[in-house]
Amino acid sequence: VNNPIPSNLKSETKKAAKILREFTELSNRNGPDKLIPPHVIAKAEGLAIISVIKAGFLISARGGSGIVIARLADRRWSAPSAIGIAGLGGGFEIGVEVSDLVIILNQRRAIEAFTKGGNLTLGGNFTVAVGPVGRNVEADVALRSTAAVFTYCRSRGLFAGISLEGSYLIERKETNRNFYSRDIRASAILNGDVEQPHECHDLYHILEAYTEAYFFQDQQKLDPTSIFRFDLFFCPSSRLFVHPDLRLSRGRRTLVVTAIHPYTGQQPGDLSFAPGDRITVITKSDSQYDWWEGQLDDGRVGIFPANFVTSGPVN
């Protein structure tokens, strides 16, 4: 987790990029069940990325800092606006917790509320739900489709979790003034009155790479009467180059992939495998971020994270 103490906007943006990378890249501690699904970010109207400290004895208080960015009319991301978070909680709570949060603003009205008043209150008129992850994407999105805000949290401390109901996202005017060298409101920043700062390149690169690969795969339209080969493209969440080769076999397309990461099934119906195992794909989507169904050479059938396999050359 990162430092929740407010700092200048350049540092806040660097921190935001680090936090976002931790929620979007596979790693030893991040399996596919723990990643933010790419389409959640791709369809978001805005993102708030912040570090928060929560402390309390009976009554808890939280505070922290970060940035907010919004979609512009052309679907590019706006320049960042510096924000803080504040709130109080009740109940029997003792301890200290530091958390990194990615808050997905799903509805344009959440952005508009923030730009009009400079602040946004979570909860109340803006329903807050824990964001969907991994295999439960479709079911979770259907259940939570009315939520204005999704939250993703990584914590270290004594509290079991963090509730954002009643929290306030607050515009840090002085921080914005110092960074942009002029008086400028969050509304102007989030509506595109300033260009993306070059200091924020890392953040935009992560966002664009994570969503572009998703859209590339999602938009493929396959002709079932032809043989296909896609061009080489980069799958950022797995750091793989993927080169699917789809061939016809007895009138049907078959795809055989090779495991490049070990996977141990976590639920009944999961397909466990070791690096080098070959899997015949039975059911797949157009996205390598999804769960596919396949069969191993020993006859076992199950679902598996598509980011753990490749149909290209294995080093």
Rank of each mutant, 00 (worst) to 15 (best):
E171K: 04
A209H: 11
S237E: 09
P236H: 11
E174H: 01
K173T: 03
F215N: 07
D223G: 03
T146E: 11
Q196K: 15
A142N: 13
A142F: 13
R156F: 04
R172Y: 15
F230K: 07
D245W: 15
K173S: 00
F215C: 03
F228C: 05
P236N: 10
Y180K: 13
D218P: 00
F150E: 03
N136D: 02
Y180R: 15
T225I: 02
H201V: 14
R185Y: 06
F233D: 10
N136P: 03
R229G: 03
T211H: 03
Y210L: 12
G161W: 06
F230Q: 09
A142Q: 10
D245G: 08
R135N: 02
L190T: 05
I170P: 06
R172N: 10
E138F: 04
H198D: 01
V133L: 02
F241V: 12
V149A: 01
G157C: 05
Y214M: 06
A142V: 12
E138T: 08
L232H: 06
P197E: 07
R185F: 07
A142R: 09
Q196Y: 02
L143Q: 09
F215T: 08
R144D: 11
L246H: 14
F228P: 07
F241L: 13
H205R: 15
E195L: 15
I206A: 07
R154L: 04
S226H: 09
I189V: 01
T225V: 04
S163P: 01
E199Q: 14
Y180A: 04
D140Y: 03
R247Q: 06
I189N: 00
R154V: 07
G157F: 05
Q219Y: 00
G134D: 03
L207Q: 08
G134Q: 03
D183P: 07
V137D: 06
G134M: 01
L143T: 11
E208C: 08
G166T: 12
Y204D: 05
T146Q: 07
F241M: 10
S226V: 15
D183K: 12
F150H: 05
I189W: 00
N136W: 01
D231I: 09
S163T: 08
F215K: 04
I206M: 06
S249P: 04
H201D: 06
T175C: 01
L203F: 11
Y210N: 12
A188Y: 03
